[in-house]
Simulated scan of single mutants.
Amino acid sequence: MPSERELQISPIVHESVVHNSRTLSNLQTLAASLFGVSAGILGLESYSGFVFYLVFSLLTAVLFYALRVAPTSLAAGKPPLDTSRYFRGPYEFWAGGLMNGLAGFILTWTLFYGLVRA
């Protein structure tokens, strides 16, 4: 939790946190659809398709963190794993997109699986 002095020097703006959350959610939803297309074209079935989604969703979060969050955290002198400054919490950042993009993943996965295998 930031101290009052830190909040006075660089306040956390609620609108910015909401914007960051919306941007991350849009990225994860789009990525989930692309992963569904990939899984369908590869012909993945059952657990292998869901593992594919889980691995690549977490990889997307890691890449987003490495390219966007970590450099700004380090430049501000914050610990590298502190996402609370930019998002509502660590769960929202690391795992929030898993359930948000699951429906889009399954939809595009079955669509492209059916198109390729038909």
Score class of each variant (00 low, 15 high):
residue 51 V to D: 14
residue 43 G to Y: 03
residue 17 V to T: 05
residue 106 I to Q: 06
residue 21 S to L: 12
residue 38 S to Y: 06
residue 93 F to V: 01
residue 15 E to Y: 12
residue 21 S to F: 07
residue 41 I to S: 02
residue 95 A to E: 07
residue 64 F to S: 12
residue 19 H to P: 15
residue 66 A to N: 08
residue 17 V to I: 14
residue 29 T to N: 08
residue 112 F to A: 02
residue 21 S to E: 08
residue 111 L to C: 10
residue 111 L to K: 09
residue 85 R to L: 04
residue 98 L to R: 02
residue 43 G to N: 01
residue 37 V to W: 01
residue 12 I to S: 08
residue 40 G to P: 00
residue 4 E to H: 05
residue 64 F to K: 08
residue 32 A to D: 00
residue 75 A to K: 12
residue 92 E to A: 13
residue 42 L to Y: 07
residue 32 A to S: 03
residue 53 Y to Q: 05
residue 101 G to Q: 00
residue 23 T to E: 15
residue 10 S to D: 11
residue 28 Q to W: 01
residue 4 E to Y: 12
residue 34 L to Y: 02
residue 47 Y to T: 11
residue 88 R to C: 15
residue 12 I to Q: 07
residue 118 A to V: 09
residue 14 H to Q: 12
residue 114 G to I: 12
residue 78 K to W: 12
residue 69 V to K: 01
residue 73 S to F: 03
residue 8 Q to M: 07
residue 4 E to D: 11
residue 69 V to D: 00
residue 56 F to N: 06
residue 10 S to K: 08
residue 49 G to N: 02
residue 74 L to Q: 06
residue 45 E to K: 13
residue 84 S to Y: 08
residue 6 E to M: 10
residue 63 L to N: 04
residue 67 L to I: 13
residue 90 P to A: 14
residue 59 L to G: 12
residue 108 T to S: 09
residue 48 S to T: 15
residue 55 V to C: 11
residue 48 S to V: 11
residue 92 E to I: 09
residue 109 W to I: 09
residue 58 L to Q: 02
residue 101 G to Y: 00
residue 39 A to K: 02
residue 54 L to S: 07
residue 44 L to N: 01
residue 2 P to A: 10
residue 107 L to S: 01
residue 8 Q to K: 12
residue 38 S to L: 09
residue 73 S to R: 00
residue 74 L to H: 04
residue 100 N to A: 11
residue 80 P to T: 05
residue 35 F to P: 01
residue 106 I to G: 00
residue 35 F to N: 00
residue 94 W to I: 07
residue 10 S to M: 14
residue 26 N to G: 13
residue 52 F to T: 03
residue 84 S to D: 14
residue 14 H to R: 13
residue 77 G to E: 00
residue 106 I to F: 06
residue 46 S to M: 08
residue 12 I to L: 15
residue 37 V to H: 00
residue 96 G to I: 04
residue 92 E to S: 06
residue 50 F to K: 06
residue 61 A to S: 09
residue 55 V to P: 03
residue 2 P to H: 05
residue 23 T to F: 10
residue 6 E to K: 07
residue 85 R to C: 10
residue 71 P to T: 05
residue 6 E to Y: 07
residue 62 V to W: 11
residue 116 V to G: 11
residue 28 Q to Y: 01
residue 81 L to E: 02
residue 56 F to A: 03
residue 44 L to V: 06
residue 89 G to N: 14
residue 11 P to I: 05
residue 85 R to F: 09
residue 87 F to E: 04
residue 77 G to I: 06
residue 104 G to H: 01
residue 2 P to D: 05
residue 40 G to M: 04
residue 57 S to M: 09
residue 66 A to S: 14
residue 49 G to V: 03
residue 67 L to E: 10
residue 25 S to K: 06
residue 73 S to D: 01
residue 9 I to V: 12
residue 91 Y to M: 15
residue 70 A to D: 00
residue 2 P to F: 13
residue 21 S to G: 13
residue 45 E to Q: 11
residue 25 S to P: 03
residue 1 M to L: 11
residue 108 T to I: 13
residue 47 Y to R: 14
residue 111 L to A: 04
residue 28 Q to G: 03
residue 52 F to G: 04
residue 23 T to V: 15
residue 51 V to P: 04
residue 64 F to Y: 15
residue 107 L to M: 09
residue 36 G to M: 04
residue 68 R to C: 15
residue 107 L to P: 00
